[in-house]
Amino acid sequence: MTDAAHPKVNAISIFLWLAVLTAAEVGVVYLHLSPVVLAALLVGTAVVKALLVASYFMHLKFEGKLILWMVGGTMILATFFLLMLWPDIVGDPWAWVMAEG
């Protein structure tokens, strides 16, 4: 098979990182920060943990371009879709008419 045998991934160290980050996440919640800062911190740690799992456990780091393009393309498409949802659902699209006073 042309697929190279996967280089040894040190599962334990990745696990430790994940565990520490999860503990940090739970800890941050009890610090009673302002919601926006809390949200930013949590989303940040979630993204870091997701990248850890994806690149090491799922060997995305060692994959060829085809699979990276597939996953990357899907993520870009997903974010575009949610951004286009933003004005209608998050904002009130007709408030500007009512504000005409």
Partner: peptide, 13 residues
């Protein structure tokens, strides 16, 4: 979005 021009979607979109 062109299916939703009159559906209350914001005119900017």
């Amino acid at each position: 979005g062109h299916h939703m021009f009159t559906s209350g979607m914001s005119p900017l979109l």
